Simulated assay, not measured.
Amino acid sequence: MFASKIRHQKSNMEKSDKIIVGISLGDANGIGIEIILKTFQDKRMFDFCTPVLFGSNKVVSFHKKALNLNNSVHGIQSLDKVVHGKLNLISIGKDEFKIDLGKATTEGGKFALKSLSSALEALKKNEIDVLLTAPINKDNIQSKEFHFPGHTEYLEENLDGKSLMILMTDELRIGLITGHIPVANISASITPELITEKVNIMEQSLKQDFNISKPKIAILGLNPHCGDKGVIGKEDDEIIRPTIQKIKETGKLVFGPYAADGFFGSKTYKQFDGVLAMYHDQGLAPFKALSFGNGVNFTAGLNKVRTSPDHGTGFDIAGKNKANTTSFEEALFSSLKIFRNRKEYIELESNRLQSK
Rank of each mutant, 00 (worst) to 15 (best):
M1D: 06
I6W: 04
R7G: 04
E14F: 12
I20Y: 07
I23T: 09
S24D: 09
G26C: 10
E34R: 09
K38N: 09
T39I: 00
T39A: 00
T39D: 00
Q41G: 05
C49I: 00
T50P: 00
T50Y: 01
F54K: 02
S56M: 14
V59I: 15
V60R: 13
F62E: 07
K65D: 08
L67M: 10
N68S: 10
N68E: 03
N70V: 06
V73S: 04
V73I: 12
I76N: 03
I76M: 14
L79N: 11
N88G: 01
L89P: 03
S91A: 13
G93R: 14
D95F: 00
F97V: 12
K98C: 12
G108D: 12
G109C: 04
K110T: 11
A112V: 06
A112M: 07
L113D: 05
K114S: 11
S118V: 03
E121T: 13
E121W: 05
N126V: 01
T133S: 13
P135G: 02
K138R: 08
I141N: 10
I141G: 13
S143H: 13
S143G: 13
E145G: 09
E145M: 06
H151W: 06
H151K: 08
T152R: 01
Y154M: 10
L155A: 01
E157Q: 15
D160E: 12
L164D: 01
L164V: 09
I166F: 02
I166A: 12
T169G: 12
E171M: 13
L172T: 09
R173L: 10
G175N: 11
L176I: 07
P182F: 05
V183S: 08
V183I: 13
A184Q: 06
N185I: 03
N185F: 11
I186C: 08
I186S: 10
S187Y: 11
A188T: 03
A188G: 05
T191D: 10
I195G: 06
E197L: 14
M202I: 15
E203D: 04
K207G: 04
Q208V: 02
D209H: 07
D209I: 03
F210Q: 11
F210A: 10
N211G: 07
S213Y: 05
K214V: 14
P215Y: 09
C226E: 05
D228T: 11
V231R: 15
E235M: 02
D237G: 15
I240Y: 06
T250I: 15
G251P: 09
F255G: 05
Y258I: 05
A260I: 09
D261R: 15
F263H: 12
S266W: 08
Y269H: 13
A277N: 11
Y279R: 07
D281V: 01
L284K: 03
T299M: 01
T299G: 01
A300L: 07
L302F: 13
N303D: 12
N303L: 03
G314A: 14
G314I: 07
A318N: 15
G319I: 05
T325L: 04
E330F: 02
A331P: 02
L336S: 00
L336A: 01
K337N: 02
R340T: 02
N351W: 14
N351Y: 03
R352C: 03
L353A: 11
Q354K: 13
